[in-house]
């Protein structure tokens, strides 16, 4: 660390904390998707198309998720309708 770094460092202080927070979010998100069946993205797309026939919704407004517990799997479909 050189003399001038002492002044420069003050601004972007603790970028490591930002890195940690961003990683925690993205890694948790990707782990959630990891265990999902391969057909899910395609199914989500088709469901989206069906809904769009009737209601104008965006890609992000339809969430499809499979939750597995010991005895059964639950397919969760979440559609945010335009207000």
């Amino acid at each position: 660390m050189s003399f001038f770094d002492y002044f420069r460092n003050k601004r972007g202080a603790n970028s490591a904390a930002t890195a940690r927070e961003r990683l925690q979010v993205i890694v948790a998100h990707e782990r959630g998707q990891r265990n999902q069946p391969d057909y899910l993205p395609r199914m989500q797309q088709e469901i989206l198309e069906v809904i769009r026939k009737y209601i104008p919704v965006e890609q992000d407004d339809v969430q499809v998720q499979v939750d597995e517990s010991n005895s059964c799997s639950v397919l969760e479909l979440n559609v945010t309708l335009p207000g």
């Binding site: 460092n9 972007g12 202080a13 490591a16 890195a19 940690r20 990683l23």
Partner: peptide, 18 residues
């Protein structure tokens, strides 16, 4: 370690935690 101390690099604990 110097960059970790300066808050510019993820620490061992951060990476282990993630």
């Amino acid at each position: 370690p110097a960059r970790v101390a300066a808050g510019e690099m993820l620490s061992v604990a951060d990476v282990e935690d993630i």
